[in-house]
Computed example of a mutant assay.
Amino acid sequence: MRRGEGHAARMDGVYREQRHIYDLTRKYYLLGRDRLIDELMPPVGGRVLEIGCGTGRNLIAAARCWPGARFYGVDISGEMLKTARASIARAGLAKRIRVAEGDATDFDPNALFRADGFDRIFQSYTLSMIPDWQGAMREATRHLAPYGSLHIVDFGQQEELPAWWRGVLLGWLARFHVEPRAMLVEAAREVANDIGGRMSVTRLYRGYTWSVRIDRRPH
């Protein structure tokens, strides 16, 4: 079995049918996605990559928000990419958004897109679904251009929310192979240090969501 093949099959199994209603249902609890998009601020002519692009919802929103940039997306689920390509074409953005199948922990954007060195990379509610989530962060920073930044939004640890809520939420998320990463901030800080960069974190909605940013600086 090739690296990531088992995870790809699992994700295809989860989303083969769910992809049709994914955006409608997830908008109520995948909080902070539009805030992340608003804060991307890519340079004119810059490249923006979403790792774990799913249905293409975020890429479409980002392309509309930042019309001067070019957008790319990778996802391990071929089923989700069927929906993404159809949605992108329907939005009239096929010339500005390209998507391809790829493993978040090991992909070659040159082979997929003939592009490398992205000004902005973002991961929206994907690390909580990727077994090697720390490897996915490291792989993302590997493809950042000088002065580029990695933007992450994902489930937090519900720090200021009632304990019963946390128990219910974690139990429900586990049904979809989702596990909020308690060590996300510490891992992001380590990744930032390894590349000589800077990490910042914002806890949103009483800890329901964590927003993490890693800025790369050239050596």
Score class of each variant (00 low, 15 high):
I130Q: 01
T55M: 08
I88E: 01
D108I: 12
I37P: 00
R114D: 15
A69I: 09
T126W: 00
A91S: 15
D75P: 02
Q123T: 00
R96E: 10
A63C: 15
A63F: 04
T83L: 06
R96I: 06
I121A: 00
D38G: 04
A89E: 15
D103A: 07
P109Q: 09
A89D: 15
D103K: 04
E39A: 15
L112S: 11
P131N: 01
A140I: 02
T83C: 12
V74A: 12
L40P: 00
I97K: 11
A136I: 05
L81W: 05
D116E: 14
G45Y: 14
C53L: 06
A100Y: 10
D119R: 06
A140G: 05
V74S: 00
V44F: 04
G135T: 12
I97Y: 02
I60K: 02
N110I: 12
L40D: 13
T126I: 08
M41Q: 08
S128G: 05
G102E: 02
Y29G: 07
L36R: 03
A89M: 13
V74F: 04
L36M: 15
G56S: 05
G54A: 12
R90H: 13
G32D: 10
E139N: 14
M80D: 02
P43S: 07
I130R: 00
R57A: 13
R98V: 06
G92M: 12
